[in-house]
Design a protein around this nucleic acid. Structure first.
Lengths: 103, 103
DNA sequence: GCCATTGTTCGATTACGGTCAAACTATTTC
DNA sequence: GAAATAGTTTGACCGTAATCGAACAATGGC
């Protein structure tokens, strides 16, 4: 099988700061990004997240994060993992992610 | 006359990151903040800003920035100056403003 | 005092985004 | 193949926010 790179994320060179900021400017998405701070891939399974929203809402937030350039999705069978694009973001917007994770 | 501290800005200790991010997550406001990067106070005079919006809209954005904690307003006669709260923001959210100004 | 200047506020309109419920897709398991 | 699991998509609803135009307020200059 192919090393599954489904669900397209934008090239980091195309990512605009204002769009990243908009993606971060929501309580749930900001919290998700903080959970992803360790750099590892986390399953999207809604039970594992501490939010009181439906899984369709969570799915919407995951999509917003991915399309903004903040995360990538790794498909593994029927499980989808989400991962912060930390290294790329650090190169494109130095200091931004660290300051957000710290705040 | 009093050294005019009209137009209240929130205490920086009360400022939440997500609210700062929301204020920054607009093209016009982000551009305003970048113009304020030099740290000096700029008049709100709409003719001096390169935006194709009405002055009432610009006034709304200035208000949003101030209420989010990003700026302060200095009243000087009939001219209002706006200033980035750089030092306070640097202490509250280290690295955030610098990364936004750089991006 | 009158007028121009500078900016705010108000009301209306419109667009966008977060949320839910339900239907749908894909994958694994039995 | 059927059922269960993991997640997405769609459509509707609703609150919020961006925008405009007009009215309003405050100040400075004459």
């Amino acid at each position: 099988m192919e090393p599954s790179q489904s669900y397209p994320s934008p090239d980091m060179s195309d990512v605009q700061l204002v769009d990243v900021l908009r993606a971060l400017a929501d309580p749930i998405r900001l919290e998700i990004v903080r959970h992803l701070a360790d750099g590892t891939a986390h399953p999207k399974t809604s039970d594992l997240w501490p939010f009181d929203v439906q899984k369709s809402t969570l799915s919407h937030h995951f999509k917003t994060l991915r399309e903004s350039g903040l995360t990538r999705t790794i498909v593994n069978g029927r499980q989808h993992d989400i991962q912060l694009r930390k290294a790329e973001l650090d190169e494109r917007f130095p200091g931004l992610i660290d300051s957000v994770l710290r705040g």
